[in-house]
Amino acid sequence: MDSTAKSSKLGTRMMPYLAILQHDLRSLWASRLVRLWLAATAILTFVLAISNWALFQDAPLIAWLLFPYLVFPWFFVVVVLGVSPVSGSRAEALADGILSRPVGRCEYLLAAWSARVVLVWAVYLVVIVPAITVVTLAKRSVPDDTVTVYGIVSSLALVGLVLTFLVSLGFLMGTLLRKPLLAVVVLIFVWYPISLILSVFSLEEFSPISLCQALPTQLRQPWQEVEEKSETNTDKEDISTFTNQFSHFLSVLSGTKPEPKATNPDFFESDEFKDFSLFRVTLGYGLPTVAAVILAVLCFHRRDL
């Protein structure tokens, strides 16, 4: 009885969040942009798979199928989807329709952000999962590959995380700059030279192109090996590397010379990307995603509508 009352109370409390989420998903699905994107994703995935069917093994072919999401052109669509909810003419309709009701701004923003993340993941998975299933199960005239289920799931999650980061970045820019077109232009100018910017801070590991190059290694990663690695305190090494990268980033920002340290070979030194760390990359994209959402909420909270 008590648990029923609690769940009903939670349901009432969550009602506006769920209503906005549902409404936004519905509006997004009704938009031409999303429908065109879905169709274009399906076509491009099909074309990439067919044209490389007999050329690549499973892992490089799957990485190639994921390339449009990480580098070009789908990042652009994802950013545009992220920019829209609180900018331009939508802000007025939003004020009249939703924010003049008993809804908190944070509640609205989180619901709008969740709707975009859910939509982006849905479009991404609905095309890529069947494509990967076909690629891995089909008998092709290429040598067998050692792609693992863990590798596929972790790679898909990783690309999904990058897409979530892009939605959040668009979301933040849309909130900060108000004008959707300006926000998109700024993001294009930031995202395209991102590899260059990251290399300045010795953070190449996080660049989308590097991720694409490292995906075949990750796709072949067995679950067992990861377990063994974690037993040998790899997490501590990851944290230490992440801390070093972060301190280097700060020292470059502040203009001071970083202390020389004995390090492993650079990320690009070997083409095998054995030093690719899922943990570090997850942190590298996860933390900015959280930061972008928090900043967007803070910024929106102070804004006049």
Partner: peptide, 8 residues
């Protein structure tokens, strides 16, 4: 209905 839900 949407507005009703927003008003809980």
């Amino acid at each position: 209905d949407l507005l009703g839900k927003l008003s809980r």
